[in-house]
Write a protein that binds this DNA or RNA. Sequence first.
DNA 1: TATAAAAGTTAGATTAATCTAACAATTGAA
DNA 2: TTCAATTGTTAGATTAATCTAACTTTTATA
Lengths: 218, 218
Amino acid sequence: MYSAAEENYLKALLSLANEQHEVSVNELSKRLEIKMPTVNSMMKKFAEKGLVHFESYKPIRLTAEGKRLAALIVRKHRLTEMFLYEKMGFGWEEVHEIAEQMEHIQAPKLFEKMDEILGFPKFDPHGSPIPDAHGLLETPDYTPLSGFNAGDSVKLMAISDSSESFLRFLNQKHLQLGTLIHIKSKETYDGSIRICIGDGPVEMLSRHVTERLMVLPV
Amino acid sequence: MYSAAEENYLKALLSLANEQHEVSVNELSKRLEIKMPTVNSMMKKFAEKGLVHFESYKPIRLTAEGKRLAALIVRKHRLTEMFLYEKMGFGWEEVHEIAEQMEHIQAPKLFEKMDEILGFPKFDPHGSPIPDAHGLLETPDYTPLSGFNAGDSVKLMAISDSSESFLRFLNQKHLQLGTLIHIKSKETYDGSIRICIGDGPVEMLSRHVTERLMVLPV
DNA sequence: TATAAAAGTTAGATTAATCTAACAATTGAA
DNA sequence: TTCAATTGTTAGATTAATCTAACTTTTATA
């Protein structure tokens, strides 16, 4: 059995591994907002428990077991988000914080029940895939909106930032999953983009925002 | 904000105070399965935080604030039990263990939502009253079945032991909340009782069991 | 009422998870 | 290629929550 602290390290390791290729003590430290020496000694413990491969001054790599456990925590998180959203009437901006706590609950039956009641969903309310019960996760290949140009039309598939503030911002802009976005123009200086949603007004989105909107061309 | 450990002390203090009148370090220690010196120093900390009145060699008494906070944790526990039972299809024997973990979640909205979805229930699946949002709890005056005699008829109102094993035992005996029980005879030696449920067969219940079945005469 | 048993307390150790300060290794830029 | 910045590590302190051992106070009984 792993503590909530350990589970948070596992989750952060998995998400960093999915973003980049090498995961360093420094990056993990920043992501968790935990100082490097603490992270360093935790990684030594993880190596002894067989959760990571870790040698001094080398990057950290999750073992297969570490990956599986991390994905099972993510599974609990995302099933919870979906349950709160679909079955309890929470907004997509409210569910992350609650799921952050619920993911540490040790009660397999609770999450199996959510899964069943939800009809075995494949994605959470932010479009992120839900790992299966074996800890297997298939990553859809969406592209950030920032990679597209004037004239392109795309569909919003997922949001790579589940923070309440960001999602409230998207609510304001009427951006939801499935929304069709047409790119009117792109500013080469700062990468900001002017978009149209359906026949609505033109909206400006900063690079910070477009990097977090995962889309597919239509 | 209080830790899960502190919340468990609060809950135990409240439930002991409702059972007896004076709460001692020793009893709290037994209830929590935590050694006396640990409990002793925690009670000193609680006294400083204004959760209890505590002087050396004297009984422990929850302050009004301590009582309120304890009741709010019980409220989360019981709302969760009811939600799991009514809305997710769990059996009454399965919900206590899960609620024991969920009661520590810091997300007022989650429990407000459960309350609303459930239609503001007054009792949990074991017949225990749910404290209101201010931490006020009205205790119904049920009597243990063990206090009745041959010839009496009573209705099962609550179970004062939510452990999975005890509730499984009651399932086997077809005892549920609302069940009408007629007492055929009572053994003076060990207090065991022979009962009839409706026109079913006669069943024997030991004193251990009848002490945990809270009833009202009919 | 004397004293043994029970309950309560104090002192000090342990473990997990964190920190800061100081030092070492690696990396990258001049 | 050198050396300064960045990254990583070690050592040692801290806090919360627990423990055991030893001692004290209260309680209950012979």
